[in-house]
Amino acid sequence: MSRQKEFDYDEKLITARDLFWKKGYNATSMNDLVDALKINRSSLYLTYGNKHDLFIKCLNSYNKLKGKEYREAAGSNEDPLTAVKNMVLAVLDVILNDDKTCLVVNSTFELARIDEEVKRILHRQTVWNLEIMEELLHKAKENGTLPIDKDPKAWAHFIMISITSIWYTQQLFSDPKLTRQMADILLETITK
């Protein structure tokens, strides 16, 4: 008869995710994970797999959470351009009120170039985000709030990359005023 697990799978996954988020994938050791999760090494391997397997589970869990938040921000207004602005403002709120950079941003710069599985996951998540943004921008173009000469696909990419730049600025300069100004410039650019 197999023994019942004495811990909550999702709770430990969140703990591991937060550790990877704080330290990065490469700087997080299996000993760090064992210590943080407070489970023995064999339970960790049996439940989550090796370090890479665990990271992939954490990244997928994070993407699911952020996807939900993204959908909520996108659907927060009937006007599509206002919904886009709400998405930017929701990310800005996280940037200014959380001391961690987005796990997707971290993982993109740390791993996407060298880990094909991570790159596929990040690509899939980004494409999904871009599709939501592009759909909203198409609707804005149709209702006349986005100028006819603006290509929704190019603008969706521009907005997403700009959001990453806002994360970058806050991480490097820790200047909330500058970070807000960058977001304001992005929001003004969207409506011009």
Rank of each mutant, 00 (worst) to 15 (best):
E134V: 00
E135M: 09
H157Q: 12
S165C: 10
D98T: 03
I161K: 08
L96M: 06
F158Y: 11
V91I: 15
W155R: 00
T108Y: 15
I161R: 05
A154H: 03
L96A: 11
I166W: 03
L92W: 02
D98N: 14
I114R: 10
W155Y: 11
F173P: 00
I161H: 07
K119T: 00
D151H: 03
L89H: 06
V104L: 13
S174Q: 14
A90C: 12
M87I: 15
E142G: 02
L89V: 03
I132D: 11
K139M: 09
T179I: 09
C102I: 01
E110V: 06
Q171S: 12
L96R: 01
N106L: 12
S162P: 04
L178D: 01
H157C: 14
D115W: 03
I166D: 05
D115F: 06
S162L: 05
W167G: 03
V118W: 03
L137E: 03
K119N: 14
D175W: 03
K150A: 10
F173L: 14
H157V: 13
S162A: 13
V94D: 15
T179L: 12
R124M: 09
E135F: 02
W167F: 15
I121W: 01
W155A: 05
I148S: 12
T145G: 02
F109I: 12
P176G: 04
W167T: 00
N106Q: 15
T101D: 06
P147H: 10
V127S: 11
H157I: 12
I166S: 08
S174V: 06
L130N: 06
M87L: 11
H138V: 13
